[in-house]
């Protein structure tokens, strides 16, 4: 801090003016710094996207989506990878959504204030901070060997479901918390039971928030590579899992659950780690598909949130 000379009033005023001017300059400079930081982040993103676009776009064609991986870079595609990703995500969503939403409803609407509830809450927070590769080790020990699921779609789907469970739980809880208490009281006053209140009011009103959380969770799961590598998923898969409708004896067969598989990020990792330059273009193309998939899911989630935030007025 500068000490002001207290000789004459005129000099005093001048000194104060200079002080203010200096502070305003700093203020302005920091505003500029903030804009630069934001522009830097945008620039990095533009370079990341641009680099992949430059290398990957020439390789993107219909054939890229309908071909199996191959030893020749030019004819290699992502058919088995995207089919694997869709099937794994199906398992993940089917497991994570009921469990996550159920847990969220329990914690917000049912849970008494006791030790068990505290333990569950601390657990959820803690699980959100566990590195994804640890889930891979859990899956390797538990699903692959203890449950004997092997390196299958079921094992991968369950792993990713556990991974995104905290995301779904937290989103559900936050969505439920925004519902005003008088909605519940109104329903109780009409003689509704707890479950009727929850199923007729709480769940429908929190649905946009829950959907946002589920989509963000799934977008994260789609890009997860480490846990799937850890369970030892094969990277060269030139066939599709058995179709659920192919078998004449059963209406729907579940053989695909135990089939070996590959997913988009694994296929991309495989291509990145090849020494041949040509495969890098494949990796870029696969990365482009992956980024477009995750970003559009995130965009949908953000859109749902903004749209319903404006629409709902309690």
């Amino acid at each position: 801090m500068t000490t002001l000379p207290l000789t004459s009033p005129a000099a005093d005023v001048d000194a104060i003016r200079r002080l203010i001017a200096r502070h305003k300059t700093w203020d302005w400079l920091f505003g500029l710094l903030g804009v630069f930081a934001l522009m830097f982040a945008m620039l990095v993103f533009a370079m990341l996207f641009g680099q992949m676009l430059k290398n990957g776009l020439p390789h993107l064609s219909w054939d890229f989506f309908t071909s199996f991986p191959s030893r020749r870079a030019a004819s290699a595609g992502i058919l088995s990878a995207w089919v694997g990703t869709v099937l794994v995500m199906l398992v993940t969503a089917l497991v994570a959504v009921p469990l996550g939403v159920g847990a969220g409803i329990y914690l917000e609407e049912y849970a008494p204030k006791n030790l068990l509830t505290d333990i569950i809450e601390i657990n959820v927070t803690n699980l959100a901070g566990v590195p994804s590769i640890i889930y891979g080790l859990l899956a390797l020990g538990l699903f692959v060997y203890q449950f004997g699921l092997g390196q299958s779609i079921a094992a991968a789907g369950l792993t990713l479901a556990l991974l995104i469970l905290p995301v779904v739980i937290v989103a559900t809880r936050e969505a439920i918390r925004t519902i005003p208490q008088n909605i519940r009281e109104g329903a109780y006053a009409c003689g509704a039971t707890k479950w009727q209140v929850v199923s007729h009011h709480v769940i429908p009103y929190s649905l946009p928030g829950i959907m946002t959380g589920v989509i963000i969770g799934l977008a994260r799961a789609i890009g997860e590579t480490a846990p799937i590598i850890t369970i030892g998923a094969l990277t060269f898969i030139a066939f599709l899992p058995p179709s659920p409708f192919g078998n004449p004896d059963q209406l729907i067969s579940f053989d695909w659950l135990t089939a070996p598989f590959t997913v988009m990020p694994i296929q991309m990792f495989n291509w990145i780690s090849r020494p041949e330059e040509a495969f890098q273009a494949n990796a870029a193309a696969a990365g482009l598909v992956l980024v477009v998939m995750t970003l559009s899911m995130n965009a949908v989630a953000i859109w749902i949130r903004y749209h319903f935030r404006k629409k709902i007025k309690w």
């Binding site: 963000i216 994260r220 991309m268 990365g287 980024v291 965009a299």
Partner: peptide, 28 residues
């Protein structure tokens, strides 16, 4: 207005799969 654009953008930056960042680190 800047905040309304910047926040979703940063969220998206956080949503990019880590493998893509790996590719970016190694090849760019």
């Amino acid at each position: 207005r800047v905040r309304e654009v910047a926040k979703p953008f940063l969220e998206m930056l956080g949503g990019v799969p880590t493998i893509v960042y790996g590719y970016f680190a190694l090849l760019f």
